[in-house]
Amino acid sequence: MIEIIFITTAIVCVISALLTVTAHNAVHALLYLVTMMIAIALIFFLFGSPFAAALQIIVYAGAVMVLFVFVTMMLHQGEQSIIDERTLFSLKTAKGPLLLAVILVIELLLIGITPLDNPSSQTALNTVNSESQQLSAGSKTASLTSVKSLAKQLYGPYKLLVIIAAMLLLASLIAAIHIARKSSKLTENSPVNGDSESKASEAAP
C-alpha cells in the first residue's frame, strides 16, 4: 500500500517538476512547483519523518513560494510577459540542454542501479539495511519522539550548525536589503519605484 502511494506521489512529483521547467507562464510554474513541494512533503511523511514534512510545507511551500509569488506579482505584465517568454524559451531551442539532461539521467540511473548488481556493494547496502532494521526495531519508541531527539542533537553536538545557519540568514538579509536599496540611489527613477523597492527589501528576507 505504501509503495503504491509512494509511486503515485513520485509520478506527480516528476510531472509537476517537468511542467515547472517547461511552463511559459510564471504563475503556472509557481503553482506546479508548490505541487511538487507538497508531493515531496508527502514522501517525507511516508518515510516517517513528520517534522521534515511539516518544515517542507511551512518553509518551502509557504515562505519561499510566497517570496516568489510577490516578485512575480511585481514583475508580471500579463500577456506581454508570456509572449516574451515564448521567444525566450521553446522546446525547439532547448534540444541541447534536453540531450545533456537525458545523458545525465541515464548516467545517474546507472549509478543508482548498478551497485545492487555488484556483490561487494550489495553486501555493504545489506549491512546498512540490517543495521537500520535493528536500529528501528530498537528505537521504535524513540522514533515516536523523533522531534525531541532531533532537538537534543541539534542543540547538543550540532550547536555550531545552528550558529552557522543563523549567520547565513543574517548575511542574506543584509545582502538582500543592500542589493535592493543600493541602485535605487544610483538610478533614482521615481518615488514610486523607490517605494516598491523598499517594499521588496522588506519582503525579501
Partner: peptide, 22 residues
Amino acid sequence: ILSFLLFAIGTFGLLSRRNLLF
C-alpha cells in the same frame, strides 16, 4: 532514482531557460 530525476530536471531547466526567475 526519484532524487536523481528531480536533479536532472532541475539541470535541464537551469541550462535551457533564459528567464532569471525560472
